[in-house]
Design a binder for these strands. Structure first.
Lengths: 196, 196
DNA sequence: GAAGGCGAGTAGACACTGTCTACGACCGAC
DNA sequence: GTCGGTCGTAGACAGTGTCTACTCGCCTTC
């Protein structure tokens, strides 16, 4: 039994991460998480006064993993001597990959009705990451007078693509589940065509 | 007492539309909708076997209104002799305006956990509208070999912007709630800079 | 006109949820 | 050895969505 297993707080969060991966957001009932962690339904209250605070902690874990995923992808791209455009490409794919790998967690992370109050606090984790995004965009568009706006526009496009796919709307609209041409179109639009 | 008030099915949907506008998705409890419609909690079952089917009907109303809103905005723009680019501009603003005017309904419409099964069916309403989008994009980009992909990319960007704003992430990232520069950046990226 | 059938809505039960409160077991400090 | 505090348990409570009688009023039919 590791320290992490001993600490109920961490155990509850881990149980939530596991549950949301297998059963989606609706599997994240307070009692269900407690059961999965092997404690009674009243136990979580000691660490999380309310159900939402527990969900927020689980989502926090998700934001941490997203940050790690993106940072890892960017480090990998940078290590191979990729230019800014290629690094943004890698980041975008890592973002969409994260959403596709854990759609339940991805949904939780942006369900502000479940995280209300702590939502903005949580997403603060991704701000430093956003700044590296901005730096790369500024490198691609040296003459852009508002790189933050351009980056936010690109960021929101990735978000939209991730959710279009999660909702299964891609097939409805384009007749195919393949997100690749859409991602390429989005990146080309925001960053200019890739020179390959 | 109008016909609509007499027909409980329509009355329940209307109650849901009203509730989601004032109290958000979490106000859409089955019993709460029934109360608001002035009937007992068992009554909806006659028309909607399950809670989700009632929610789907409410969301359907939302998709209808979105379609009307966008069609109205486009008709207005077209009537003033606007070119394709300006019409897309108007459509984009109408889309974001719809999301901002009724964030609860907008959230419901894309909560696939609540609408699962009927979600794709619902969104089918917007497909014809999407096709007019594609036509306008093809007009702006006559040499584009995949206008559907380009349109889906633009569409997803608008989606992302709407949700970034709904989550209050704009201030977090750009330091301002103003979506205008982001919308402008997105439209410029996907459609080229406006010639004004 | 009376009787039977049927559809619409009511009311209660059921299992479940999140929250709250009282209780008990444990453990280190004095 | 006893006290105090922490941690988890167990039950109550109001609320939920679903399911199942049951009632009432209307319409058809004889």
């Amino acid at each position: 039994m590791t320290d992490q297993e001993r600490d109920l707080r961490a155990r509850l969060v881990a149980a939530g991460v596991e549950l949301v991966a297998t059963g989606g957001v609706q599997a994240l009932g307070l009692r269900e998480i407690a059961r999965h962690a092997g404690v009674s339904h009243g136990a979580p209250r000691r660490y999380f006064p309310t159900h939402r605070e527990l969900l927020a902690a689980i989502a926090q874990k998700g934001f941490g993993r997203l940050t790690d995923t993106l940072a890892g992808a960017d480090a990998l791209a940078a290590a191979t001597g990729a230019d800014a455009r290629s690094r943004l490409d890698a980041l975008a794919r890592a973002y969409l990959g994260f959403a596709a790998a854990g759609p339940g967690m991805f949904e939780l992370m942006f369900r502000h009705d479940l995280l209300e109050g702590s939502g903005a606090e949580l997403r603060r984790t991704t701000v430093p990451l956003f700044l590296t995004f901005v730096g790369l965009v500024a490198e691609v568009h040296p003459d852009c007078d508002d790189p933050a706006a351009a980056t936010a526009a690109l960021w929101s496009n990735l978000h939209g693509l991730a959710q279009l796919r999660a909702w299964g709307s891609l097939r409805l609209i384009t007749g195919s589940e393949d997100i690749e041409p859409l991602l390429r179109a989005a990146l080309d639009a925001h960053l200019g065509p890739a020179d390959r």
